[in-house]
Amino acid sequence: MKPEKNKVYSFIPGTILKVFVKEGQCVRKGEDLLTLEAMKMQNLIKSPVEGIVKSLNVKEGVKVPKGKLMVELGFNQDMEDT
């Protein structure tokens, strides 16, 4: 029932312009993950939580449909969802 904050989906179809993170990398909450160009804007997609990039499902230059799981973040055991 609880929305899964650690999963980053595309909010609209668009093009991945830049990817700033790699799998396995630690990210802080609010850190830039990637740029999704859509709605006439290069939208900076930021990390909703602090955690580790568990899976990265997009590459620079690819087109993504709406609702694609672009990045999944994992938590360390001692990390709290802030």
């Binding site: 609209i12 859509a38 709605m39 804007m41 939208n43 900076l44």
Partner: peptide
């Protein structure tokens, strides 16, 4: 707010 969902 252009920072979020391009401000739509």
């Amino acid at each position: 707010q252009p920072l979020v969902l391009a401000g739509v």
